[in-house]
Design a protein around this nucleic acid. Structure first.
Lengths: 360, 360
DNA sequence: AAAGATCTTGTGTTCGCACACAGTTTGTGA
DNA sequence: TCACAAACTGTGTGCGAACACAAGATCTTT
């Protein structure tokens, strides 16, 4: 239970001053090769591990992160990543990390541009954003790259970007998993639909990947005996239109067995059809929205895949922190767990989202 | 982006010295009511939040935790909580937290006693342990209580203890979940068995709770049309005996449909029966042991419920840290998530276990 | 060999807070 | 009114590391 080794201990053991040890540790140069070697040797011999507490206190610099996300007021899904950012901030603000939010309307690409212009004008040290609009996001990536501002992406992935990291689900795999779950208890020769309830302007790439994963599951495991049809519908937020659309679906597929809703809006499907229909159908959707959980409890939704969207925000900030403050290596792709949520275990996931460890 | 408020700022604003502010913050007394009120008012007005970094550095005290767990060499399951403890330690050692391990043989109650005697003799500041032996654990609880040493329990719950916290699964609920999973794809009038592969000496209470949860699921949702039978078998580690036992089971239940293995030893079942039998049967077990995952991939095991046993160790240490160093309130019961693990999502959980956030 | 440039090294201050200690004020009793 | 205790308050030091600065050592150049 001996005391941890300090810089001072190394300095004494190596017969130099703490300043020299410091220069060796940080590679600041201006140290004679002989002393440098001696210090390194002593460091290894004593197994020196820096006290990050003291280090952080002395470091005493600011690190400003610009966060570009959809406004949670407009789409409740985005409350989750937003909360994750604020949780993370709670942990790292003592290290001088600050966050400035720039919220846009996820249904309007032009607000995305407006907000990133503001963000860039404020010249933050790093950017966390969700590339919901493909073209505009590439423009942002190019500009921030030119300005030398590093970034992390959450929720939606863009290939070949020079981002420090992507934090979010593996969309393809989430589609495979959804197919597996939907397929439980369905007989052969079933009919299932893939339902994209999204507006056209959004970056639809991850929806396509989900679809591909879903189809591939059936191709690989179910050898084509199941009919899979895809539909897109934009007016999911208009009650009557949505009901009409679902009626149309039932008309076209009287033998429908299951629905895979590719985003957090499974509850909209349940709201637009009768309770009996919902219970007969197998419905699989994403994310722990309040309404989704309500319908999980009534048995109208069968499975929810939790994409851990709170953690997107949390790990987004933490990744920047780990990289720039703690100088740790970070993974370029951080796929978050895909939790299978049913009636019997949903409460744990609700709780988990609120109990992050504070990284003091 | 203004600088955070420091004690010094409060002192200046309140017209007192930093010492007085310090006394108010820590309730050390010896402060006139007037100044005390003034300081509190200023603190609230400026929304003071202490810099825990600096606080931790200055606090500079040791906190020794005695950890009493089964030897991972004897049963591989226990590698997980053990790792969790060392991960947590990595995070909190800078705060002067140290850990001393006391490992016992989970098949021998007397080694549990030996080790806790040693532990108590070393007079740690707190204890983390797993109450695998009921009687002996109650004795330990009584002694540590008498000595005024606080404790947290992991993995197995003992009711009415004065422990600071329990961290582990809700055994009853894990049984319910297991039944739900096993019941997927099984027809009515199925036969399933509950299989306890454990030695008699161990605290079997949580196995009973799992059994109860399992039975209750069938009672509530399946209205009795499924036959549920329970078996205990102690010699699971002896190859021939185990094979003989499984043959006996098949003899008694030629129409067997599913097996619920109540602990981490589902792989022992698969190893003791033919591959075809394993694929035909639905098998549900616990924990991400290497061999369980192998059989998940071959389709011989159908579902694994992840009890997050690494996190038991992690949160065990963190709970003590939060309570005694950070002076935070902690929950008396912390039930860890019950993750449903299938082929399509197991990799995330393996990864998760290795990516704890360092709580600097 | 002297002057200057360059490289090397040690010392001292700072970060925000905890706590010891000394100093000041107020209260009490004779 | 004085002595002394008790209650209060301010100052100073240390936690371990980061970094600025100055001083010392070595090397060039003429």
């Amino acid at each position: 239970m001996e005391r941890p080794i300090r810089i001072k201990d190394i300095a004494e053991a190596a017969g130099v001053s703490t300043g020299t040890v410091d220069r060796v540790i940080h590679g600041r140069g201006n140290v004679s090769p002989a002393k440098r070697a001696k210090v390194l040797e002593v460091m290894r011999a004593l197994d020196y591990k820096p006290n990050i507490i003291a280090s952080a206190l002395a470091y005493n610099k600011n690190f400003r992160i610009g966060v570009l996300l959809p406004d949670p007021e407009i789409d409740p899904y985005w409350q989750a990543p937003y909360s994750g950012v604020t949780y993370a901030l709670e942990s790292v603000r003592h290290y001088g990390v600050t966050v400035q939010f720039y919220l846009f309307d996820l249904f309007k690409a032009e607000t995305f541009v407006e907000q990133y212009e503001k963000l860039l004008a404020d010249a933050p040290d790093a950017i966390l954003f969700s590339p919901l609009f493909l073209k505009e996001s590439k423009a942002l990536l190019a500009k921030s790259s030119a300005l030398g501002i590093p970034n992390v992406m959450v929720n939606t992935y863009i290939e070949n970007s020079d981002s420090l990291s992507y934090i979010g689900p593996d969309s393809y795999q989430s589609g495979v998993l959804a197919a597996r779950l939907l397929n439980f208890g369905l007989n052969n020769h079933a009919t299932v639909i893939i339902l994209n309830l999204a507006k056209g302007s959004t970056n639809a790439q991850h929806l396509l990947q989900k679809e591909q994963g879903f189809r591939d599951y059936y191709a690989n495991f179910n050898s084509g005996s199941t009919t899979v049809v895809k539909y897109d519908f934009e007016d999911f937020d208009k009650e009557e239109l949505m009901e009409g659309f679902m009626e149309e679906i039932f008309g076209k597929h009287p033998d429908l067995d299951g629905i895979f809703v590719t985003n957090s809006r499974a509850f909209r499907v349940v709201e637009s059809i009768s309770g009996e229909a919902a219970k007969r159908l197998k419905i699989v959707g994403f994310d722990l929205m309040k309404k989704n959980l309500d319908y999980l409890q009534t048995g109208e939704v069968d499975f929810i895949i939790n994409q851990n969207s709170v953690q997107q925000g949390y790990w987004g900030i933490m990744t920047l922190f780990n990289h720039f403050i703690l100088k740790q290596k970070v993974e370029k792709i951080q796929n978050l767990p895909l939790d299978i949520v049913v009636l019997e275990n949903y409460s744990y996931y609700l709780r988990k989202e609120k109990s992050f460890q504070l990284a003091i």
